[in-house]
Write a protein that binds this DNA or RNA. Structure first.
Length: 808
RNA sequence: GCAGAUGUGGCGGAACUGGCAGACGCACAGGACUUAAAAUCCUGCGAGGGUUAAACCUCGUGCCGGUUCGAUUCCGGCCAUCUGCACCA
């Protein structure tokens, strides 16, 4: 009879979720395993087919771990604050709480229909006051430890909507929603000092098991560089221009300086500058661009010379011109650079464009290495030798750097300096749908945190989600909420009206899962000690630099104040590739290539969906969706179901399949650990093909096969297991084991090559010695025939791999 | 621009640590079953040459070059595509 996936899947899901089959145990004596997936943002579109890729992968590992005897925590929750809900509210005047509730209900239904073994008793929701109470609590601790501060930062400001915009909402310099021009506007913002943790965020990567490319991305994002800060006096004034450079060795080659348009020196020296109007105009234009646009557009360099002032090279005492250009960013280093056009690509382009002189101070190690300054900058750091550089002449770049830094320090014109590209975290949002920042401003006492017993500071219910005139948060209009008393002196005070970014709630959610209903602490000490750290965290590569870094930062802070027991939150981090539309492009409504998971479950069932997502390609790489291929996975599962037809009795593996069974257990077990799910599925397919060829499978073989397949296709395998008359479900059985000796073949097909080209294969015993192999090879007819008119030069034998004969 | 990744048949992909390139699946073609179709089962399937059929020969893992008995794999240089870039999540 045909397999009715709809009925069977419902049956098992009802059982699992009503009985709480997969809920983590509070028995802290058992060995634990904590698997984590990035909790979804419950968008109005519902689940995306990309979500189940990651969830199925860790579900497979979680199910395997349970069978291996671990107490498994595999939780789920919702990261529900965010921009889409707020924009929807502005447009349709529906409170974000209502849409969020609705969306969460929809997501829950969809996730349950896929049969994930989540612990549904521990669901967290970042918008729940009982949850964000602790997000606020962490913020207050950060503030108390001096890691949260206010500063003025530029934001994208839409001149039409009068609202601060995310970079994503700015398209070609105009607002995505209304099309009005977007400008950079200064705004006082809460910042978190993540830079204080920069070095530790790099160093502690050594202690965790992250994919190498994730570590590299994180390190590059933090962007540590060693160099020097050098002070250039401004001629005929008391002002100095301090620059940061990673190339102090090139100080003799400086031919001009550049300051960022926002550099304060311009204001200070305004009375000396003779072309102030020109500079003001340039600053205005630059203020329209974001940092990103500036570096993106740097093919066409722009800039204006600052007339009336000259800087003095502290080493050569030469007077050099100062320019203003937006290729220098105020947010990195000191906002000013010394330019060495002969040895830096960006400086070179700028100097070429504005016809500024260049001075070569490094040459190639040998005369073969050409340095042609008419064509390009010479940037070979590895082998370069200093020239035209006084006391640095003939040194290598590395030596010259060291010598110059000591010279700078001895003469008090510069210091060695480590710099990071990482910037502090802008933590304020002028938005409604976020956690209120639990701070109060008092004229007398300044910024005062709310007393912890007053948390949570709940988000007030409002009906107008539009921002205020000057881009303040919608909360600013609600004076009855804003006006309060100072917790410190009792005087008049105002609440902070900005809210937290979505990153806040997702920076610590994995801790809450450990003890989600605790109202005394974010989680109990016992729960934290037992479950920490997360053993395996899988998520998108796109979260590598922001979410992952932010949550590591928070965790380290919580470790420092004694809240959590580990320095790092995640022991292991892997990532999955994106699922693209059938046309190879990212799925989007506008492209019409979106696949709805509900349709797939309805047409093919959850098991087929799961197997297909695991089979479609290497887990960590992008893969296009294919309706044809998913059908193939459905066919495979039907073939599994139909194996019942030739099932025979048997308590142990039959001799015919014994090797195959042991090999398969080994292969599937290791493939799951290495996330090579696609090859695990192909192993299952090959096994099924073998059973079909023999038209026979015995009960012992079938049982093991079902156990191995269970994490991938849990519904069908449990159903088949029940039909076998087993009293225990597969989930209650131990993961199959194999005997290494039984995975090894007695005899192998050894390829025989002539000059590296395959000419024959011979059968040799496993691990045959060279003499044995040689004898067998030379007795082979094809080989003797080919050797007729040839001379053997050399013979190469690699045990169990190859026999290569080099002939003339 | 900076950073990370990817490139193998008509398509998705496999290949352990440098050792038979194309496992497994899709599509396609042929056959069995059927009044017929679908489903199912079986067989074939990189390109070119060769053969009644086979054997066999040549080419082939983005491009150019190198190391090696042997390179999809290692090295150097290019090209193309995808992802992220700090207020999307």
């Amino acid at each position: 009879m045909a397999y009715n996936f709809t009925e069977v899947e419902k049956k098992w899901q009802n059982k699992w979720y009503s009985e709480g089959t997969f809920n983590a145990s509070n028995d802290y004596s058992k060995e634990k395993w904590y698997g984590l997936i990035e909790f979804p943002y419950p968008s109005g579109q519902g689940l995306h087919v990309g979500h189940p890729r990651s969830y199925t992968a860790l579900d497979i590992i979680a199910r395997k771990r349970r069978m291996q005897g671990y107490n498994v925590l595999y939780p789920i929750g919702f990261d529900a604050f965010g921009l889409p809900a707020e924009n929807y509210a502005i447009k349709n005047h529906v409170h974000p709480r209502i849409t969020t509730e609705k969306n969460i209900a929809h997501f829950t239904e969809q996730l349950k229909a896929l049969g994930f073994s989540f612990d549904w008793s521990r669901v967290v929701n970042t918008t729940d006051p009982e949850y964000y109470k602790w997000t606020q609590w962490i913020f207050i601790q950060l503030f108390k430890h001096g890691l949260a501060y206010k500063t003025t930062m530029p934001i994208n400001f839409c001149t039409g909507c009068k609202v601060g915009l995310a970079n994503e909402e700015v398209v070609n310099g105009v607002c995505e929603r209304c099309g009005s021009p977007v400008v950079q506007k200064e705004k006082s913002q809460w910042m978190l000092k993540i830079t204080e943790y920069a070095q530790r965020l790099i160093d502690d990567l050594d202690d965790v098991d992250y994919l190498e490319k994730i570590k590299i991305q994180q390190k590059n994002w933090i962007g540590r560089s060693e160099g020097a800060e050098v002070t250039f006096p401004i001629a005929n004034s008391d002002e100095n221009l301090v620059v940061y450079t990673t190339r102090p060795d090139t100080l003799f080659g400086v031919t001009y300086m550049v300051v960022a348009p926002e550099h304060p020196m311009i204001e200070k020296l305004a009375d000396k500058i003779t072309n102030m109007d020109e500079i003001k105009e340039y600053q205005r234009k630059a203020s329209l661009k974001s940092d990103f646009e500036r570096s993106e557009l740097n093919k066409e360099k722009t800039g204006v010379p600052i007339r009336g002032i000259m800087a003095i090279n502290p080493i050569t005492k030469e007077e050099i011109p100062v320019w203003v250009s937006d290729y220098v960013l105020i947010t990195y280093g000191t906002g000013a650079i010394m330019a060495v056009p002969a040895h830096d690509t960006r400086d070179y382009e700028f100097a070429k464009k504005f016809d500024i002189s260049m001075k070569q101070v490094i040459k190639g190690f040998s005369d073969d290495v050409v340095c042609d300054l008419d064509k390009e900058a010479f940037t070979d750091v590895e082998t370069g030798i200093l020239i035209n550089s006084g006391f640095l002449n003939d040194l290598s770049v590395e030596e010259a750097k060291k010598k110059m830094i000591s010279y700078l320090e001895e003469n008090h014109i510069g210091v060695k300096k480590v710099n990071y590209k990482l910037r502090d975290w802008v933590f304020s949002r002028q938005r409604y749908w976020g956690e209120p920042i639990p701070m109060v401003y008092c004229e007398k006492c300044g910024w005062v945190p709310l007393p912890e017993e007053e948390l949570p500071l709940t988000l007030p219910d409002i009906e107008d989600y539009e921002p205020g005139e000057n881009g303040e948060s919608p909360l600013a209009k609600h004076t009855e909420w804003v006006n309060t008393t100072c917790p410190h002196c009792g005087g008049k005070a105002k609440r902070e009206t900005d809210t937290m970014p979505q990153w806040a709630g997702s920076s610590w959610y994995f801790l809450r899962y450990m003890d989600p209903h605790n109202d005394k602490a974010l989680a109990s000490k016992e729960a934290l000690d037992y479950w920490s750290p997360v053993d395996w965290y899988n998520g998108g590569m796109e979260h590598t630099t922001l979410h992952l870094l932010y949550s590591r930062f928070w965790h380290k802070f919580l470790y420092d104040i004694g809240v959590v027991p580990t320095k790092e939150p995640y022991q292991k981090r892997t990532s999955h590739g994106m699922i693209l539309g059938a046309n190879g492009e990212k799925m989007s409504k506008s492209k019409g290539n979106v696949i709805n998971p509900d349709d797939i479950v309805r047409e093919f069932g959850a098991d087929t969906f799961r197997v297909y997502e695991m089979f479609m390609g290497p887990f960590d790489q992008t893969a296009p969706w294919s309706m044809e291929s998913i059908r193939g996975c459905g066919k495979f599962l039907d073939r599994v179901w139909n194996m019942q037809e030739f099932l025979v009795e048997g308590d142990s593996y039959s001799p015919k399949f014994e090797k195959m069974m042991h090999k398969a257990i080994k292969k599937v077990s290791s493939d799951i650990e290495e996330m090579k799910f696609n090859t695990a599925v192909s192993t299952f397919m090959t096994m099924v093909n073998e059973f079909y060829k023999a038209k026979r499978i015995n009960k012992a073989e079938f049982k093991t096969f079902l156990q191995l397949l269970n994490p991938f296709a849990p519904h069908m395998t449990e159903e088949l297991n029940e039909k076998l008359g087993e009293s225990k479900t597969i989930a209650e059985t131990p993961w199959p084991t194999y005997d290494e000796a039984k995975t090894i073949d007695d005899e192998i097909e050894l390829p025989v090559q002539f000059n590296g080209k395959l000419k024959a294969t011979v059968k040799v015993p496993m691990d045959a010695e060279e003499s044995t192999a040689k004898e067998i090879v030379h007795n082979n007819e094809t080989v003797t025939a080919l050797l007729q008119d040839k001379t053997i030069v050399k013979e190469i034998y690699v045990k169990n791999k190859i026999y290569n004969i080099v002939v003339r």
